[in-house]
Design a protein around this nucleic acid. Structure first.
Lengths: 239, 239
DNA sequence: CCTCGAAAACCTGTATGACAGGTTATTATT
DNA sequence: AATAATAACCTGTCATACAGGTTTTCGAGG
């Protein structure tokens, strides 16, 4: 029936895993770039000599990790770097209580202390403007917590983007989901308008430092921001 | 640029995506912990009123992201936090040239400067011993680059573990795959025995600082280690 | 009544065939 | 040569079947 590349008898990892590896191998050996099309399911079925069921589950797995894009009628294509999978992993860790929100914040702080410094050094004018704009929109919408949160998230993602290192962007964006779940808690602990506006001011200070191109100052403001955020979460009883 | 998932556009997320969400939702609403069993495919098929094909592809997707564990005959179970998916994403980014090795090293440096400091503060005696052991094994096997590399990777993962923040472990471990691909390059640029032993000495210094519980010193040595590694990669022409 | 082992009942892994509906290539028509 | 109709592909979903693990059940024997 089917036996072609299995001289050393292994404890079968399953046909699907094999198919996944074959597809990844195909991407590598062909040097495919994002957007390039992969073989059709039928072609892969013939090549691997397995059923379409297996090939489909393999494609679907890669799609779940956002390594490829699938859509009806079209062949699957190599995907652009995307945070989807990473985000799911983090969320899973939180919902199953394997990691705490505070631990995520510690990682965020560590990473964003760096992204903010890099952003100050490498940001384009356009990026600096986008960062400033998010900060401004936080203030303008400050009566609408939901909007403030979204601009806050956009603010941090914009800084990561301005670091010009997509790996930082990837990680920061992956944490955005967690932020959406906990942000409002921190906001509520800042009970007075004054406290809330002060927090927004902190963002503006960061944006200014990036605009001025001062990495040290930017990192200082970012550290302060995180320290206050973590304190707010602790005050609210988030483990 | 990027467009999808915006204002008017979401005709059909597909039955599989729906099923995936349903399963995740089940995990959350039931408060399942790692090891807990999920409903059988048949049960899910009835509940969602879709074919087993769809349910299976959903399970398989979650399995690909390592959110659940599947094995023949047994029901799927909630998985422990695992680096599998994250690792694949990073590797994909590298093979498709969306991120560079140097960018990964910059992230590693950022993160490990923190893990090493945390390790110095929070390591148990057992963890300190494990870290020291890896460093020692590097020296003992120093004629066998492959072995040195594996102990090097174990060294960094042990430090991350000693930080007592699983998110750091997750990220550091996710990068191990990339390290395996490039490590030997850095090793070769250290052409003399002397240079190679110096690099190993660097690891021992880090281990000592952690043992002594001196976070500042540990971070210093780690920084030095990364600076030299990155320099080695650059000298070797790794973009 | 308890123990142990075998059958039964479930479950997942893989294969096959079918068909709807989307997308691309081909061809016929103007 | 531009365009519209059509054929050829391709993916999404369903139904069915069966092999081979795993757990449960239950009866035979002590």
């Amino acid at each position: 029936m089917q036996e072609q590349t299995d001289p050393p008898d292994e404890p079968s990892p399953g046909l699907v895993s094999t198919a996944i590896q074959a597809i990844i191998q195909h991407i590598r050996s062909e040097g495919l770039a994002p957007g390039d099309p992969l073989p059709s399911e039928a072609a892969m079925t013939r090549q691997l000599n397995v059923s379409r069921t297996v090939v489909r589950e393999a494609f679907r797995s890669l799609s779940a990790m956002r390594l490829i894009d699938m859509s009806a009628g079209r062949r699957a294509t190599v995907a652009k770097l995307d945070t989807g999978a990473m985000s799911m992993v983090i969320e899973h860790g939180i919902t199953t209580q394997q990691i705490s929100v505070q631990q995520v914040y510690d990682v965020r702080r560590t990473i964003e202390m760096r992204t903010v410094a890099l952003a100050a050094l490498r940001r384009t004018d356009h990026e600096a403007a986008a960062i400033g704009r998010s900060a401004r929109l936080m203030r303008e919408n400050f009566r609408n917590p939901e909007a403030v949160m979204e601009h806050d998230i956009a603010f941090h993602e914009a800084i990561a983007a301005a670091s010009h290192n997509p790996v930082f962007s990837l990680i920061v964006t992956a944490f955005s989901g967690v932020t959406r779940r906990t942000w409002v808690i921190g906001w509520r602990t800042r009970s007075s308008d004054e406290a809330q506006l002060k927090m927004i001011k902190g963002h503006e200070d960061i944006a200014d430092a990036i605009l001025k191109g001062d990495p040290r100052l930017a990192a200082e403001h970012m550290a302060e921001h995180f320290d206050k955020s973590v304190k707010a979460l602790i005050d609210a009883g988030i483990a």
